[in-house]
Structure formats: structure tokens, C-alpha cells
Amino acid sequence: MSDIEIRRTVIEILGNIAPESNPALIDEKADVRAALDIDSMDFLNFMSTLHARLAVNIPEADYPKLSTIAGAVAYLGTKLRA
């Protein structure tokens, strides 16, 4: 899976969690929790959906690495190519 496809998936999932916003337009390096007003349950759902869609194991300790769109794309790309 290319980074472009990963990015599209990440943005689609975030868009479903925050339907009134457009995650494609936020700063790639912004904390999505602040930029999209995502709470603990939303973030857990973000992780659950990524896990289900991409079959990537995401330990809790790695959550901070996925708190931005750029970070999530890099993290998932590395895991998927490993």
C-alpha cells in the first residue's frame, strides 16, 4: 500500500469520526485530537478502525506517533512494509 493510499484511508476514517470537518484540509503536522476536537473514545475508535482496515497492530504506547496525519502515515507505512 502506498503512502498516498494510507493517507487517504487515514483521512477517510478521521472524516467519519468528525463528520462536520474536512481532515484533508488540516495541517498534516497538527495534533488531530486538537484540530478535529477528537476525544479519548474517538481516538480509540480511530485506532480500532485503522487496525481493522490495515491489519496493523498498534500498541497503546505508540498512540503519540499517530496523533498527526503525517505521523500516522509514516508509522503505518513503516509497519506495512516491515
Partner: peptide, 14 residues
């Protein structure tokens, strides 16, 4: 508890 679980089964402090 959460380390051994997939995200969908993890528990939040709440």
C-alpha cells in the same frame, strides 16, 4: 490489560 488486546477491546480510564 490493554497491551495484550487489539484496540477494539481496550479499556479507557473512564
Amino acid at each position: 490489560l490493554n497491551a495484550a488486546r487489539p484496540p477494539a477491546e481496550r479499556v479507557l480510564p473512564a
